[in-house]
Design a binder for these strands. Structure first.
Lengths: 203, 203
DNA sequence: AAATCAATCGTCCAAACAGATGATTTTTAG
DNA sequence: CTAAAAATCATCTGTTTGGACGATTGATTT
């Protein structure tokens, strides 16, 4: 019997998967969580074979949650579930130990198939993502943690001096980060930077 | 017996609602469509009492679809369903005849309640949206045509001098527009301006 | 006809940004 | 442990912003 746990903050999605699993023999729905914290709490008591994990959670991202889960419970397989089809997100999930990636418009059959493959130790990627991952590896445009922090503050309208004060570093430092951001995201100025950041889901 | 039709491109959401309705007496799930076209095709043969309609569809937007449906079948109640909580979207849906707006993280009870209210001729808005709609009827802070033009160019990363050249006006003029925009949208600088513009659907 | 608003242009000036370059110290990862 | 990457700080310079004024023209509305 395969035990399955769901982490998603959408009631309807949970209910949909639950109903799907219910009709399937050999798969047991053992609960769900609506955020990262309650997920970790649940895992202290129960370890499912598979977690179906949404990327967008209220308190954290599925990407981070996946990393933590895999670190503490390496035997649990994480199958990512998301509406977003952004490559960097997929890459991050896989890098953090996810065994597969499903888009939320997946059919029932696809979900079941994915669960089976993942359970057997395999990796399942939905068509779109599998195709996309094959394409030219634009691996570089990674922004660092600190840069992301700065980016968020820039998007919120803080000026360099303000950000420097907030992060307890000097102005030249923030300036350097800002310039790296402009270069990495190929933005000409803050306006373009913010637009790119928002449209790429960084913010 | 209340007949309910679902328009959503996410299998899991459809399945979730279906399972919810199944357990409820007096509500009958009579089918679903994954896009606007198949929705309209279905309606030629069957007219449900209520349509649960997603905003993001592959071929059209729920906003447009709602308008068309209400025009051809005024008696059908449309209950909008979305992950997005942008006010302009909500306003548009309601303006196009939707009887309510639910966020996708709604609980089962909330969904059923909404359906009942809508069926009875009422209007149901989820908490967040109801609150948001109450706030200061920002009808005034309308930006003018010219300002919008400038705003778009700013968002695309053009500098003042560049915009001035593009629009065949002087730099001070663009400066004035930019300052009006900052004031009207209550932005502290371009970064905040771009963020607000994008998040409010202006861009 | 008067009032309002949009769009245009102007000046002055301080603050913030962005480009170029270089260097040191932590952190992370191989 | 060691090499690479990230984070830090610095200086210098020209450009762009954004704040605070004021003002004219034309269109729309009342």
């Amino acid at each position: 019997m395969m035990q399955i746990f769901i982490v998603d903050d959408h009631y309807m999605v949970i209910e949909g998967i639950r109903s799907l699993l219910h009709a399937e023999s050999g798969m047991e729905y053992i609960g769900h969580a609506v955020d990262g914290a309650s997920c970790m709490a649940f895992l202290e008591e129960n370890q499912p074979n598979i977690i179906l994990m949404d990327i967008n959670l209220p308190d954290t991202s599925g990407i981070d949650l996946c990393k933590i889960v895999k670190k503490q419970y390496p035997s649990i397989c994480v199958l990512a579930l998301s509406t977003y089809s952004q490559l960097p997100v997929v890459r991050n999930m896989l890098a953090n130990g996810a065994s597969g990636y499903l888009l939320k418009n997946a059919s029932g059959e696809e979900i079941l198939e994915a669960i089976h493959i993942v359970k057997a130790g395999g990796e399942y990627l939905c068509m779109e993502m599998a195709e996309a991952l094959k394409l030219p590896q634009n691996t570089e445009p990674l922004i660092t943690r600190r840069e992301k922090e700065v980016l968020l503050l820039i998007c919120d309208g803080f000026t360099n001096p303000e950000i420097a004060e907030k992060l307890f570093v000097s102005l030249p430092t923030i300036n350097t980060h800002r310039k790296s951001l402009l270069a990495k995201l190929k933005a000409k100025n803050v306006a373009a930077l913010v637009k790119i950041a928002i449209q790429n889901g960084i913010v």
